[in-house]
Every structure is written in C-alpha cells, then in structure tokens.
Amino acid sequence: MGALINGPLPRLLLARAGQAVLVAVMVGVLTFVLVRALPGDMAYRIAAGRYGFDWVSTAAAEAVRQDLGLDQPAPLALLAWLWDLLRLDLGQSLVTGQTVAEEVGHQFGHSLLLAASAAGLSLLIGPPLGALAGLRPGGVLDRGLLLVAVLMRSVPPFTVGVVLILLLSVQARLLPAAGSGSLAHTILPMLTLALCLAAVSARVSRDAVAGVTASAFYTFGRTKGLGGGLVFWRHGLRNAGVPVLTYFGVQFVGLVEGMVVIETLFAWPGIGHALVHAVVARDVPMIQGAALAMGLFVVAMNTVIDVVCALLDPRGGPS
C-alpha cells in the first residue's frame, strides 16, 4: 500500500479531480449557450411559471428580470450559472416539475444496472477469447476474431442492436424487443452493449497476451520447466492485465455513448434515454443534469481503473 501513496497515484487522482471540474464547466457552458439561444424572453417564461399564465404582464416580467438579474451581461450571467452548477443546484425539470437531482438519481440506477451488467458480460466474453487467440497468434481463432472485431468496430452499436432485435425477438420470438422490468427485458440491451465492448477488448487482450508470451521472461519460465498453464497464470496474466484494464477504462466513454443510443432503441428508462427525451422537449435543466451525470460517471469509472492498475502494477501508472 505504501507504493500506492508514494507512487504516481496522488497525481493521477488530482488530474481526475481536475477532469471532473472540466466536465462540469463544459456542460455548464454548453447548456448556458443553449438557454441563451432559445427563442423568446426568459423573464416572461419564468414569470409564467411563478405567477401562472394569466398573470404574466410586462411589469411582472420586469420584476422577475430585476429579481434574478436576467439583464446582467452574458459573462456575469454565465458565472452565476456556473455557481449554481457548482453548488449542485440543478433546478427542476421543465416537463415533470420534479427536481432534476431526483429524476437523474432515479434514472441513473437503471443505467448503472445496464452498464454494470454489460461491462461484466463483456469481460467474460472479450478478454478470455482474446487471450486464447493471443496464445496462438495467426491461428484460426485469431483470424476469425480479427474479422469479427473489424466488422463490429465498423458499425455503430445501434446497428448491432437492430440486428439482434430482428433475429432474437422478431424471428425467434425468444425475448421482448423493448421495455424494462424483468430479467428478459435486460438481456437484449445488455447483450448489444457487451458485444460491442467485447469486440474491442478481445483485440486488446490478444495483443497484450501475444506481447507477453513473446517476451524473454516468459520464455525463461517455460525453460525452467513450468507447464503452459502455470507459466501463463504466474507470469502472463498479471502483465497482460494492465493494458487490458487501462483500455477497459477508455471503453467507458464508448459505454456512455452506447447508453444514449441503446437505451433509446430498447426504451430502457435510463439516463441516456432521458437525455434524448430532454433534448427533444428542450428541457434544459434535465439536459444539464443528465449530461453532467454521464460525464462524471466516465471520470469516476476511470478513477477506479487508475487505482486498480496501480495495485496491479506498482512500478508506475499507465502513461
């Protein structure tokens, strides 16, 4: 554990904290521009919300404008906007009237369930297959896997989802095509995301394992009489694990992007689905809340990966 504290970890954690702040600022600035670009006068809309549509008058709108400082120049207004964001005061959804924090918290649970099960499943599919291919580079499995991986990388995840829906739920009638609530509903979106993630992690594991088995220490392990399984367990797995895990962190970006599209495709009540609906309804507080939650999720998961990598390889963090 001493290596953890003295090693590169504190600097990495600091960088991740900085990244989290940058996510918040980016989301804040973009949604601020979004609000300013909306047609109409914001003061009238807020006045309608406060006093009811029948009581909106120019005087009431002026009062709101004075009260909230809406006539401030843009840079000051932006600072006020970011200050609200910093205090995690996200406001209320314009559509449902509930606080954004409540809504996002509810949807995030669903998304987390989907993301965690998809990531778990992809780890069961991708790295083992990749490792098997890497132990015998140029073999049948290696070539076949390369072909599948290139194909999967060439299409956006929703295409895979559409093909799976057509095969498994429309043709074979095995699984429900959309919705949530039961285990059966989880399988298709989970499988779609997991397959897309596994296609990439299998290639990375293959390269990592092929690299390790070609190294001098691995050959020495074999020479001193260790069996194929034992030498892989003792010398191969941990060394190949670090690049695979680092890449797994990169994949969380893809996972979040996949969430937006896959949740919409399968009508999964998660945060990506909420974001798309908020964009369609121009529900700015919800857009901000959902985007913030997804951005911070990526940063948080990458921090976890950093710590695990530092535990696996105390020599120095991933570059």
């Binding site: 900085g18 990244q19 989290a20 940058l22 996510v23 600022v25 980016m26 989301v27 973009l30 949604t31 521009v33 979004l34 670009a37 970006v253 979040v256 992007e257 937006v260 599209v261 974001l275 798309v276 964009v279 369609v280 121009r282 857009i287 985007a291 997804m294 951005g295 990526v298 940063v299």
Partner: peptide, 21 residues
C-alpha cells in the same frame, strides 16, 4: 483540449446539436 476531451464525444455533439436541433 482536456476540457473538450472530458466529455464523451457523442454527448458533446448532442449538446451542440441541442442548440439548433
């Protein structure tokens, strides 16, 4: 660059697109 990179790519495009759907 880090500020832009902090957000997942599709999210960035989606937020910019939300300004003028």
């Amino acid at each position: 660059a880090d500020a832009v990179f902090a957000l997942p790519g599709l999210l960035l495009v989606l937020l910019v697109l939300a300004i003028a759907p």
